[in-house]
């Protein structure tokens, strides 16, 4: 069953078109990855799905309901969430306060407490530093906190915007293991990544954007072997080595 259905979505910043007629589907329990070069519109797509940037045309359906007119908090309440690029944790707050902010719309205090403990169980580093300012965390720990914060909203679909950006290779592997683990527990994932190899390896479906349009979509394994993917990142003719 389709959990997220994006149909014909277009977004403009002033006169510049950032997204043009983009459609994609995430089925319940799937990991779908969105690939593309810088400026392809990947971040804009995630923000538009959440409702943080207005769509000029097209619609977003989540769990069978048309949410196109809803503000971000209503979509979050339905189970959508976004882990923003660059993690963007709040460094003036403690680790625990960051997690609490993720659950700010919930009133079931006891369940929030339990889930926070579960997150601490999953990320022992965060548990040790729960009262410390989030600015004390390493880049990898900050990414864990950003994901933990998103989990506190009890999402059904987590959108991750370039989560591996700036992480050490060790943490990148941990991160992808975590994404697989969360997915195995039933969380659907929409993943924007620069690390195409790893993203295609975990994904069940993939979409490639170029200048705000979908240029390829389908099976990740087939896409990984497709030379057009490389062209989407590096421009046409990039597959051939440049002559000296």
């Amino acid at each position: 069953m389709a959990l997220l259905e994006v149909s014909g979505l277009s977004v403009s910043y002033g006169r510049v078109a950032a997204l043009n007629d983009v459609s994609l589907t995430v089925r319940e329990g799937e990991i779908v990855t969105v690939l593309g070069a810088n400026g392809a519109g990947k971040s804009t797509l995630l923000r538009a799905i959440l409702g943080a940037v207005p769509a000029k045309a097209g619609g977003v359906t989540f769990a069978g309901e048309d949410v196109s007119r809803e503000p971000p908090h209503a979509r979050i309440a339905r189970g959508l969430c976004l882990v923003p690029e660059g993690r963007r944790i709040l460094i003036s707050l403690s680790v625990e306060e960051n997690l609490l902010l993720g659950a700010h719309m919930r009133r079931d205090t006891e369940a929030v407490r339990r889930e926070m403990d579960a997150i601490y169980g999953r990320f022992p580093n965060l548990a040790e530093r729960r009262k410390m300012l989030a600015s004390c965390l390493s880049g990898g720990e900050q990414q864990m906190l950003a994901i933990g914060r998103a989990m506190m909203a009890r999402p059904r679909l987590m959108m991750l915007d370039e989560p591996s950006l700036g992480l050490s290779p060790l943490f990148v592997s941990k991160l992808f293991a975590l994404i697989r683990e969360l997915n195995a527990e039933g969380l659907s994932v929409l993943l924007v990544e620069q690390n195409t190899t790893k993203a295609l390896a975990v994904a069940h479906g993939a979409t490639v954007l170029e200048l705000g349009r979908v240029i390829m979509a389908g099976d990740p394994k087939a896409l990984a072997a497709d030379p057009r993917l490389q062209e989407a990142y590096l421009g046409e003719g990039a597959a051939a080595p440049a002559p000296y």
């Binding site: 908090h73 902010l101 909203a153």
Partner: peptide, 9 residues
Amino acid sequence: TVADLLGIS
């Protein structure tokens, strides 16, 4: 920006 993405008005 993040406050907005977390659904805070």
